[in-house]
Design a protein around this nucleic acid. Structure first.
Length: 343
DNA sequence: CATCAGGGCCCTG
DNA sequence: CAGGGCCCTGAT
């Protein structure tokens, strides 16, 4: 079987793509262990079936491999679970084209610890929510699951932007078009993965070039966001230390970020475990089924119920329900869900 | 073939 | 604070 994928096709066509791209081979350059307060559910933490699939990540149950842009370098990493249930650890293998400085390895450790919420102590969550009848089965199956994203704020904003007002299928197309045009391709352990772009490249391109990728009105959003972020270096680090109110306010200042995106970003990027203030229509349908067993409850009802049941952990609790549902769906399709999330 | 809604947000009135 | 418009695509 001849291998046909985006990158090799582009390379073969040569002149028809803007830049023939040969994948850069990355090699193992460093390893580290991150201790995690127990419990840890490794698979539930690293892989989220509710997220749409993109080519910066490979996951097949045994292998978790993804790219990482850090310190101006294009890296990749593989995660494994180790250390047993009493003293869980995440083992990280770091890949790069060239050797890594000790400082870069330290930076990677700090980033991965934060991005996968590996410092979180979940005992209070279990105390608060463990008795909830609705949540208990999901909590039992996924005990130790954390909220996570492998993406930086900047990268995650691209995702929330391509998610807007469209179907998941098209979101995937837009994301891959961005990778092809602005990203890089790396080869790690025989796998071909996309790397995120240098924001300056996107900034230099401007709105029209983004429109050519069929991003529609989202082209303006990405173009303006990248400018705003360029003017605020260090914003992501700063916001990690901000109050959630401050965080919300600052995120809303970004062009194209509204209440729905703020919710996803506050929870997934900044690990605010209680960040559930907004229920979008597709989530409303799912919550209605899960919480009330009927087709449609009002967002107010849903938010009130979540607050009453789960308090300051309400978004993490909702996350357990959603991921549990999507995992079950992945294994054996759930008919009513399939109708709502079809590609 | 035409029409329309899809995992929002901005802007106007 | 409600609602029209926005880009594009696949489903109908």
């Amino acid at each position: 079987m001849p291998e046909v994928d985006g990158a090799s096709l582009a390379a073969r066509r040569g002149s028809s793509s803007r830049r023939a791209r040969r994948p850069v081979e990355l090699e193992l350059r460093g390893e580290l262990d991150i201790p995690v307060p127990p419990p840890l559910h490794f698979t539930g933490t690293v892989f989220k079936p509710s997220h749409f699939p993109t080519s910066d990540l490979a996951f097949d149950g045994a292998l978790y491999l993804r790219t990482l842009r850090l310190g101006g370098r294009q890296l990749a990493y593989r995660l494994r679970s180790c250390g047993g249930s009493a003293r869980p650890k995440v083992h990280v293998e770091l890949y790069g084209a060239r050797p890594l400085s000790a400082a870069l390895v330290d930076a990677a450790r700090a980033e991965l610890t934060f991005r996968f919420d590996l410092g979180a102590d979940l005992r209070d969550f279990e105390r608060t929510c463990g008795r909830d009848r609705l949540l208990a089965p999901a909590l039992e199956r996924w005990r130790g699951m954390r909220v996570s994203t492998g993406l930086s704020l900047h990268e995650f904003l691209a995702v929330t932007t391509v998610l807007q007002n469209t179907t998941v299928r098209r979101s995937v197309q837009m994301m891959e078009a961005l990778f092809r045009r602005f990203g890089s391709t790396v080869l790690v352990e025989g796998r071909r993965l996309s790397g995120f772009w240098d924001p300056r490249k996107l900034e230099a391109a401007g709105e029209q070039e983004l429109r050519d990728l069929k991003l529609g009105y989202r082209a303006r959003i990405l173009a303006r966001q990248v400018q705003q972020l360029a003017r605020a270096p260090g914003l992501e680090q700063e916001l990690r230390l901000s109050s959630t109110d401050e965080l919300r306010g600052r995120l809303l200042e970004l062009y194209g970020v509204g209440p729905a995106s703020v919710g996803y970003i506050a929870f997934e990027v900044f690990k605010r475990h209680g960040a559930l203030e907004h229920v979008s229509p597709w989530e409303q349908q799912i919550f209605s089924r899960l919480l009330f067993g009927r087709a449609l409850a009002s967002p107010r009802e849903i938010l009130a119920a979540a607050d009453r049941r789960w308090g300051r952990w309400k978004m993490l609790a909702a996350h357990y329900l959603f991921e549990d549902l999507f995992w079950r769906h992945r294994e054996r399709p759930v008919a009513w869900l399939a109708k709502r999330i079809r590609l």
